[in-house]
Each structure stands twice: as C-alpha cells, then as structure tokens.
Simulated assay, not measured.
Amino acid sequence: MAKLPNLQISGRMGNIIFYVRNGKQCMRAMPQKVKNPKSTKQSSRRSQFGATAKFASSLLSVLIHPYWNPIAKKEDRSGYNLFLTTNMPAFTAGLLQKEKLLLIPENELKQEQFIISQTDMGIQLTWSYTQNNKKADPNDELTLLIMSPNGALEIRQTQAKRSEQELMIEAPKEQEYFAFWERGTLWSETCWLPLQSDN
C-alpha cells in the first residue's frame, strides 16, 4: 500500500518502490529474485556484511558520527553506509584482517609512514615529516585508537606533534593500535600499527 505524506509517496506499487531521501521523492525497481540465495558466494557475502555491520554498530558515536558522516555527506550518503562498504573487505572468512581496516577516512591531512621498534621502555614509533605541505603541519597531533580483543575502542590523545617525529607508548598484549593525525576539524586516515609485544 502506498502512502502520501505531504504529497510524497512512500511504499510499494507493483514492482516499483517509492521513498523519500533528504526531502526528495525517489523510486526504484524491486530487486530481481536471486537464483540461488544459498550459494557459497551469497552466504559468504551475507556473513561478511553481518560481521561488518555488527562491528560498525558499536562505533556509531565514537567514530562514525564524528568522522564518517562529514565525509559521506559530500557524497549524499550516510557515514554508516560508507563505513560498511569501505570495510567489508576487512572481514573475510569470519576473520578480521586489521591491515585492511580503515577506521577513519582521510579528511585533507596526510598520513605518515611509521617505523615501529620494540625497546626496553615499550614501543617506539618514529615517522618522517613532510615539510612545506599544507596536508602536514608541524603542529598536527597524533591520536591513537586502541582496540581491545572484544572490539571495544578507546581514543587516546597523545599530544605528540608531527614535527617531533617520535613517540614512546606502552603496548599491552592483545591490543591493536591504529594512528591518525588531527588538526581542528581535519584529520588523516588511520594506519594500523602492527606492534610486537614480548610473550
């Protein structure tokens, strides 16, 4: 049954679906029937989508609303949708491939290449600093995202500046680290830091 709220149609009429998005009337055809909805490929995609959606649901207020929504808005999309389509490749065969995970997309700042060293005092991060680049200011601050084994995420402001080119951190076992740069309302994409801890 179709509805006419404020002279706009939402609902299904035959094989056409009417809906309103951002105040605009839209319509689309019903998807064609899937010949084999239980094929190995279909099952794998559904599992991949489910794992990504479950992961994303815990990050709405922490990452998706503040960092993904502003980027997605430029494409007339939701941050949640953009996060899912970007990060589905990181969830394959029921396993999270951390090197493929993009927790925060780029917003005009450059990411740096990190060198990671184990020392007696902890983990030392060093990076290059590209001068005379509007995407890399000496006062950009390094922020860490720390992921616990259960998927909970902590954002830690380090106060380290891009120009300092090094940071010492304590790396508890079984936690994953991601790093990105911030400058006011600008930020770089995240970079996974494959830290090695002593057993």
Rank of each mutant, 00 (worst) to 15 (best):
W192L: 10
K74E: 15
A72H: 03
I115P: 00
G11K: 07
A2M: 07
K134L: 02
T92H: 09
T86Y: 02
M1I: 05
K161M: 15
G79Q: 03
K135V: 00
P5I: 12
E170W: 03
P31S: 12
L153T: 10
P89T: 11
G14M: 03
L96H: 01
L7S: 08
C191Q: 14
F114M: 10
I16Q: 09
S47E: 12
S10A: 07
I169H: 10
D140G: 04
P149Y: 02
V20C: 01
Y177S: 10
L102Q: 15
M88A: 05
E106I: 03
N139T: 13
I64L: 11
P5K: 08
E141Y: 00
S10R: 07
K100R: 15
K54F: 07
T158N: 11
E189T: 11
I146V: 15
R12T: 13
S10P: 00
N133R: 09
A29W: 04
K135Q: 15
H65T: 07
W68L: 05
I17H: 11
L193P: 02
T190L: 06
E112L: 02
S10W: 00
Q113L: 07
N87K: 01
L145P: 07
A152V: 01
M147H: 03
T40Q: 14
K100P: 08
P5L: 13
I116T: 12
A51Q: 13
Q131S: 13
K24R: 14
D198A: 13
G122R: 03
E189Y: 04
K3C: 08
E176D: 15
F18N: 11
L103N: 04
K41V: 14
E154F: 06
A152E: 14
A56M: 06
F180M: 08
F49M: 13
